[in-house]
């Protein structure tokens, strides 16, 4: 069962490559933002899984929580940028 969790983690890590591709390649900023959000949500799960692997999940869950929050904030801030500046930038 432990190895299942470990494999879970590895697969999760592997899946992360796909949004990373989107985030790196683009083509629009929105895509990158989406990639960031997707990676963030995977990572939250990954952190809990690493915690399980270390057998110290009580220590890791705080981080996962903080991670989710900050990911949210970052995404919101970036989309706020697009709110305010996006049109002008696309126009230019």
């Amino acid at each position: 069962m432990e190895s299942f969790i470990l494999y879970l983690g590895i697969v999760l890590m592997g899946i992360m490559v796909l949004p990373l591709y989107r985030a790196v390649v683009g083509p629009t900023t929105l895509d990158r933002l989406m990639g960031m959000n997707a990676i963030g949500s995977k990572t939250v799960a990954l952190i809990v899984i690493i915690g399980l692997v270390f057998d110290r999940v009580d220590m890791f869950v705080d981080i996962a929580l903080a991670y989710a929050m900050l990911n949210f904030i970052a995404v919101l801030a970036a989309s706020r940028y697009l709110h305010k500046r996006g049109r002008r930038d696309t126009a230019s």
Binding site: D58, M59, F60, D62, I63, A66, M69, L70, F72, I73, L76, A77, R80
Partner: peptide, 30 residues
């Protein structure tokens, strides 16, 4: 919680402070 629980789990003044500040950033952004 992170500030106060730094003795027993990861975290501490710095991380807690950043999270607290992030909440204000969220306020400003939203």
């Amino acid at each position: 919680y992170v500030v106060a629980h730094g003795h027993y789990s990861p975290g501490g003044g710095f991380q807690g402070g950043v999270i607290f500040a992030a909440s204000y950033v969220l306020l400003a952004v939203s």
